[in-house]
């Protein structure tokens, strides 16, 4: 292929700038054809199910039933709001998110700072911290189920330090905490990498300037690192929160929501009713509640960060 001359470059630019001209009929056809497979799949398996979540929540649809679903108004929601398990699940889901979001993001930032230095072997540390991320949650849940046993590995280790550990998963007081700790352990490496990529967008001259001004480590963190991580922070907050609300695998494998519903979550409840009891309509109502929660948090997050933009 020939080198592009300056003239060709210029004409190419002007071609692109004349916007309406870019979609000639044949290229529009090609574009639509190339978009078609993805469009069909996204409509079928994403947009329609989103619509169905809203639609089915107002019906008595069952997973497998010879009779068509009937519209039953807000009956599912009336039932949902009287369902004690729903309130417990909602509470557990929110508690899980409220505890794990700061815990996991702060620890992951700590890890990122620890491995963001020039040091021999730092790559090794980074790799080890990242290992749980490539281990599936199913495997991690099984492993920790074993380690959390009353005479399991964790309590044996604690005993070495003279601490008598609780019956982690068997006691309603500690079960949710136990699940929080192992979840944070599994996902921390993921967010460490995201913090790390944020840290590396901060220009080195800022640190040099801070050095010249005689800033100590804490001041450099407070006035250079922390403001430099604003975008990363928003992203991490949103992703951890949304995935925290979706808590299911750990709970299903380790406790099935017990003891006494102390680890039941919205998704676990939706699976119970919609799959095991085949009540799709009711499960859709739960899913809708879950969706509203996610939406509320995302919008709140947007609102809070936008506010800061104005201040700055």
């Amino acid at each position: 292929m020939s080198t592009i001359t300056a003239a060709e470059n210029a004409s190419a630019t002007t071609l692109r700038e004349r916007k309406p001209a870019k979609g000639s009929r044949s290229s529009t056809t090609t574009a639509l054809l190339m978009l078609l497979p993805a469009a069909v799949l996204l409509i079928t398996f994403l947009l329609i199910p989103i619509g169905l979540t809203f639609g089915l929540a107002f019906t008595n649809a069952r997973l497998i039933s010879p009779r068509p679903a009937e519209f039953i108004g807000t009956d599912n929601f009336v039932r949902l709001f009287q369902d004690e398990t729903f309130w417990k699940s909602l509470r557990n889901t929110i508690v899980f998110a409220v505890v794990i979001v700061p815990l996991q993001s702060a620890c992951a930032l700590g890890l990122a700072l620890l491995v963001n230095v020039k040091m021999r072997g730092v790559n090794f540390f980074r790799t080890v911290y990242f290992l749980p991320v490539v281990t599936s949650m199913v495997v991690v849940s099984m492993l920790w189920l074993f380690m959390y046993q009353k005479n399991g590995l964790i309590n044996e280790v604690l005993l070495k330090f003279g601490i008598v550990g609780p019956d982690w998963l068997g006691d309603p007081k500690t079960a949710l905490l136990a699940i929080i700790l192992m979840s944070a352990w599994q996902a921390m490496g993921f967010h460490m990498v995201i913090w790390l990529s944020g840290l590396q967008t901060i220009p080195a001259d800022l640190y040099e300037a801070a050095d010249l001004d005689g800033a100590d480590t804490w001041q450099k963190f407070r006035y250079v690192t922390w403001p430099g991580l604003r975008a990363t922070r928003t992203f991490i907050l949103i992703t951890i929160t949304i995935s925290a609300f979706a808590l299911f695998t750990q709970v299903n494998i380790m406790t099935q929501g017990g003891p006494l519903d102390s680890t039941s979550t919205l998704v676990l409840m939706a699976v119970r009713t919609g799959f095991q009891q085949q009540q799709t309509g009711y499960a859709s109502a739960i899913s809708l509640a879950f969706f509203v929660l996610v939406l509320a948090v995302t919008l709140l997050n947007r609102y809070v960060t936008r506010d800061k933009d104005v201040v700055r």
Binding site: F45, T53, I242, V271, G274, T280, A283, S287, V294
Partner: peptide, 11 residues
């Protein structure tokens, strides 16, 4: 999140 769609998608 996928989890909000899972049950309606199953149906």
């Amino acid at each position: 999140p996928f989890e909000t769609l899972a049950l309606p998608l199953l149906w």
